[in-house]
């Protein structure tokens, strides 16, 4: 490799992660987990959990989303730059939701 490197400081940058190939076994474990979680969320919806029905459903969906992002989308094995980018995106989204919702809640919530 070294004869192709023009700027030595660039490759010693700690942001560059080792290239990692996720194995088919790992994908299979994630796949089966996702299917089990789908069955679980359908089962949980048949129970009357009151206010917890949407909370349980969203918790399971979030867990599924996170394992897809970490393994299928390889974020677990990416550089810190990519991890920060993904995290910052979801954080910004949560900020937008919180600010918009606080606007609605503080105006006429429950008065429609």
């Amino acid at each position: 490799m070294s004869e192709h490197i023009h700027d030595a400081t660039n490759v010693t940058n700690p942001e560059h992660a080792e290239h990692h190939i996720v194995s088919p076994l790992e994908y299979t474990v994630v796949f089966v987990t996702l299917l089990l979680c789908t069955a679980l969320t359908v089962f949980a919806a048949t129970l009357d959990l009151g206010v917890f029905n949407p909370i349980v459903a969203l918790a399971i969906a979030s867990f599924k989303g996170v394992i897809v992002i970490l393994f299928f989308m390889h974020v677990k094995y990416q550089s810190n730059l990519i991890k920060m980018t993904v995290g910052a995106g979801f954080f910004t989204f949560l900020v937008l939701i919180t600010m918009t919702l606080s606007d609605y809640i503080s105006r006429a919530w429950g008065l429609w």
Binding site: N53, L58, A61, G65, I69, F72
Partner: peptide, 29 residues
């Protein structure tokens, strides 16, 4: 790799759409 990211993103959207549209209203308060 990058198309895979797109395809998995579309998966994730559905992973949230399914419970929100189909499941969470089966036992209304």
């Amino acid at each position: 790799e990058n198309f895979g990211l797109y395809w998995h993103f579309v998966d994730i959207v559905w992973i949230f759409l399914f419970p929100l549209l189909y499941l969470i209203n089966l036992h209304p308060l």
